[in-house]
Design a protein around this nucleic acid. Sequence first.
DNA 1: GTTAGCACTCGCAATGTTAGAGTGCTAATC
DNA 2: GATTAGCACTCTAACATTGCGAGTGCTAAC
Lengths: 341, 341
Amino acid sequence: MLTDRKQKILKAIVEGYIQTGEPVGSKTLLSETGIDVSPATVRNDMADLTTRGYLFQPHTSAGRAPSQKGMRYYVDNLMSPVTPPERVRDYIDAKLSAAADTPEQLLREAAKLLSDYTGYAAVTTTPPSGDARVHRLHFIGTGRHTVMVVLVTSSGMVRSKLFRSNFVVTNEVLEILRETLNKALSGVPLSQINKPFMQTVAASFTELFLVIPQALTAIMEIAASAQVVQLCLSGETKLLFAPEVDPVTSRGILGFLSDTEQVAKLLLSQKSSLCAYLGTECRRAELLTAAVICARYEIEGTTAGAVALFGPGRMDFADAMGAVNYISQSVGDLLSEMVDL
Amino acid sequence: MLTDRKQKILKAIVEGYIQTGEPVGSKTLLSETGIDVSPATVRNDMADLTTRGYLFQPHTSAGRAPSQKGMRYYVDNLMSPVTPPERVRDYIDAKLSAAADTPEQLLREAAKLLSDYTGYAAVTTTPPSGDARVHRLHFIGTGRHTVMVVLVTSSGMVRSKLFRSNFVVTNEVLEILRETLNKALSGVPLSQINKPFMQTVAASFTELFLVIPQALTAIMEIAASAQVVQLCLSGETKLLFAPEVDPVTSRGILGFLSDTEQVAKLLLSQKSSLCAYLGTECRRAELLTAAVICARYEIEGTTAGAVALFGPGRMDFADAMGAVNYISQSVGDLLSEMVDL
DNA sequence: GTTAGCACTCGCAATGTTAGAGTGCTAATC
DNA sequence: GATTAGCACTCTAACATTGCGAGTGCTAAC
């Protein structure tokens, strides 16, 4: 479709634009690449690339900048992700292993590492819960009137919450809670733990009617939170201070990121293991001038959560995609080792 | 010190400036207030206020804007906090009571409410742990190789963390952990739970040497986290979209807020129950053009954590201080009710 | 197909101009 | 002595003008 030289020119323009943020002219292009033709030839090719929609001119006397289509072509055909150098990989591996107590903790660390390495905002999500069920409920007295309930799901996820009881919590109360509620709820899918269901449960335990409502409410809340993917954000404010990120873009990204649900939806809608969304491809007004790189990590071969990077439209895709890819793989590997119940 | 009329003029200028963000001239001042003198008189007074440092002129042909000293005078002498209207108070009370399961949850809700009401970034801190001690440790098996440890402190705080064990976790293991570690650590001040101390503890439990290190590390981490005040932030991104907040200020605030320790230090350094920091008064370069309103809440009569609001230097101090004050009082009341062990 | 040459376009920055808001000062007035 | 009217003055923001330079497209030659 594109001749060899035109590809080279497009590549040079994209990389120049990524570096400087300015449209690239025919002369500067030649001085910074090994292409050995005259400026006029380059101009002819650039004119052609422009009419075909890969480039655009902000105005007549400016150089050319890649359009979204040009960027897309570059990402798809002219570059490949660059895996971080060995010492970075070693550092990442060490930090991730050290954080591999909990999936949540691991994912938080992964987001932090990704953001620190790239300088942009990183997001990781916990694996979607799928059709997890209640495995076991634990109850701990943490005060005279407070109880901690711990939910362990069939997928090994652990969630806890405190609730208050109207009367003093004794060991017997805890024992009864444990016994009755495990009997009633073990094996029940999380998705089924809603208000109507819980009301029928409550109806069958008249003896403890003074604690049961609070306990059931708490369980309902943690079941709900265990079903929703959790987001770990890191480095959002870096965007505001990075000179290569224009204020509109960073505001847009920060605005977008503050809506958790929307972010989760975007990241988990993607099938392929590693991909980049450019500008309008996200179909979100806030991200028109931004770029998102997203990779799904796999737990034991099955697609699970996502690792993503939010940055300016002109970020260094080779490095960024390499980093996202490497971290998502590592996260997947570590989580696979962690599976255990 | 200042004549009645000069106070009125200063007040009018401050309020005008808060509203519009523009320096106020002598004419506009007269048309928007009930002061019944000629512009020339106002100008004389303004000139005097300027030489005394309460006002300043950005340039010769501009009106006057309050200097930091002027703002300080306004806050100290010319206005008083305005408690939110009844329906807002009712709404806040309802939301806060509903969240009063855990101090953390309550404080998160408080930050959210404060930010939603004012439109700026709100921060709350948990109460400093003081000289809390280990009250009790609980251990729950949450997987074949994972254990959850729950620390209840003498002040009633609850912290939990998961850790991994190299071999299968049985009920006997949990029982031994519970018994031995409670014996060893109950009553020990959190501040004492550091590496050297834990190593001496570890040395005395040779029988469980395969789990103990992980357990002790986990306990060390939650003890550390229980000693540090936790911050709840809310509405940071609102600053970026509020037209009355200039970008420099919002960037500064966001940058400042991303350093947790520094924020905690600032908020907890303050003694008086309600106060405002203007510009340089925070002694932080990032906050030069910002204003911070901070109130300490009290638990059973003792100063504890803080509720704070970060906004532009020209925010509406009457409303903002009223809101911070009301919420900090409510939080204190609810937390006082919650004390219980 | 490639190149040299040249006229042309257009944004940007520097400069000039103007209108208006707001001031400070002085002298008159209350 | 405080207040006021009047007036000349200052300074910015907004707009128009200009020149420069980067970069182009086109044409004719290679």
